[in-house]
């Protein structure tokens, strides 16, 4: 299929065809994740700076977090990533039906994540906490920064989940019409990379936003 050319000593060399370049697609995906990491990295740097400036306020503000919902979402996301990994393995083994089931499970869990997030944000809105709300403006500078970052980061993360759900339906379509199969599964594999990355961000959101409030610091 691919073009073969010969050098002066008649050694054969395969020319990489950009249409079917799995390693290229993989590198592209990693580079994309790389840019995503720098994007979220920007928020984490901002977090670090303000955490340094307003340590006590951050700890106090973190006590407003609902740990049950946060914990539930952590587990949901963790299992969904596991499901997607399974989906890829089953696809590789040419067990398309199982692969599809795991993909559907991932979609369901992703939607569950968004629903939980909706309740979490609703609860905060209910307490009068949203960006620029009068309650929030009445709180400390640090609390303003904390919630500003919290809503930005979880909002952006939620947006990634929603885009992920859309993309998963697209991937599902490709599985259904056979464009993704046991021989060509790079799209599914790349999507799994994206999903693991979204999970990875959440792994760092949890300690920085939910868990610091449980420490004994900042009580004064």
């Amino acid at each position: 299929m691919s073009e073969i050319i010969y050098d002066k000593n008649n050694n054969a060399h395969e020319v990489t065809d950009f249409n079917d370049d799995v390693e290229g697609a993989r590198q592209g995906m990693w580079l994309f994740l790389f840019t995503e990491l720098m994007l979220f990295g920007g928020i984490f740097i901002t977090y670090a700076v303000y955490f340094f400036d307003f340590t006590d306020d951050f700890v106090q503000a973190s006590k407003n977090m609902n740990l049950w919902l946060g914990g539930l979402n952590t587990v949901i996301l963790l299992i969904s990533a596991g499901c997607l990994a399974m989906s890829v393995v089953f696809m590789k083994a040419n067990k398309v039906l199982e692969s599809k089931r795991f993909l559907l499970a991932t979609i369901a869990l992703a939607i569950a994540f968004i629903v939980v997030k909706y309740f979490e944000w609703s609860a905060e809105f209910h307490h009068g906490i949203w960006p620029d709300s009068p309650t929030l403006r009445g709180m400390s500078d640090g609390a303003n920064m904390y919630f500003g970052l919290y809503f930005t980061l979880t909002g952006l993360h939620g947006l990634h989940i929603i885009l992920g759900i859309v993309a998963m339906f697209w991937v599902l379509g490709k599985v259904n019409n056979g464009e993704i199969n046991a021989k060509k599964f790079i799209v599914l594999e790349n999507f799994a990379l994206y999903w693991d990355y979204v999970h990875l961000v959440w792994v760092f959101v949890v300690p920085l936003f939910y868990m610091i409030g449980l420490s004994t610091g900042g009580a004064h």
Binding site: A81, A192, L200, V203, F204, S215, T216, G217
Partner: peptide, 28 residues
């Protein structure tokens, strides 16, 4: 391991890093 802020933050970030490592190394 109820600790002060430094301890909590440190342990939490170590845990997150281990999880991150596992995700990147195996899942990804």
């Amino acid at each position: 391991i109820s600790q002060g802020l430094e301890g909590t933050l440190f342990l939490q970030l170590v845990l997150a890093s281990i999880k991150g490592f596992l995700i990147v190394a195996y899942y990804m």
